[in-house]
Design a protein around this nucleic acid. Sequence first.
DNA 1: ATTGACGTTTACGTAAACGTCAAGTAAGAT
DNA 2: ATCTTACTTGACGTTTACGTAAACGTCAAT
Lengths: 146, 146
Amino acid sequence: MTSSAAVEAAPDTTYSITQLANEFGITTRTIRFYEDKGLLRPKRQGLTRIYSPRERVRLKLVLRGKRIGFSLAEIGEIMDMYDSEPGESGQLVYMLDELRKRRTMLQRRQRDIALTLQELDQIESQCRERLASMREAGARARSAAG
Amino acid sequence: MTSSAAVEAAPDTTYSITQLANEFGITTRTIRFYEDKGLLRPKRQGLTRIYSPRERVRLKLVLRGKRIGFSLAEIGEIMDMYDSEPGESGQLVYMLDELRKRRTMLQRRQRDIALTLQELDQIESQCRERLASMREAGARARSAAG
DNA sequence: ATTGACGTTTACGTAAACGTCAAGTAAGAT
DNA sequence: ATCTTACTTGACGTTTACGTAAACGTCAAT
């Protein structure tokens, strides 16, 4: 048991490209594409790509960002923020503003999703009503025939 | 004051394509594109498109669906569910299953967003720490010079 | 020695969601 | 009558995010 919340792999664990592809249900082509876009920087043994736990985490972040609806470019920017060097004060202020924007956007999406979930509930209850009344009608027909 | 929650326009209100485009911050091209994809069906006066409050609501739903990350095709399917005719029982059962899938997906996205918001908070507090320590250092320098 | 699994690069293909002209219509103002 | 403004229909262009195919290297097992 370590002090970290999630199960962390030993820092010297490595993964092949197909291992990661299988684990996350994507293709190796996709992983190479992300590297091309600067989202991943695996080490190499000769030509072969070697992925560390850190790269694996980055890949996970990319996939989560995608599900949320960020573009790969945006995901890159956010990850860059995370491990950027301190930099000058102006840069930090700019980052804070960017963060505020993202947060606002995400909060709006939370609302959007909540609304949509409500509507799905509505549609579902309508479905169930219809089904119930159809079954009721069927039962009446059977009992009349019996 | 009507009995409905949101402010509803009189049912005979109409909108032009540019009105809607301006209201929602999109282009007329986009609106026509959605029509092309079967998401909207405005009436016509000659060639000119006339949008009812109902079409406006559909457009709103499309844009919300997009923010959530649905494809236009998915959005179409969902809206079709909403105003589909009762249909046969098998169709209803299929719909219920589809609804379950969407719900699961949306709940996952809620979690994704929550996680991302937490991480943005982390990045932000790091930013603020750095800024604070930079200002402190600046203050020391000024007081030494004074 | 060959087969198969896994890896590589390069390059062209594609679907989605529009953007961007081009060329024309239709209605009202000057 | 023509000018402006808003609207129309094509049709081709663009970006994003990969898919797909070709052509090749590497290593273990048969």
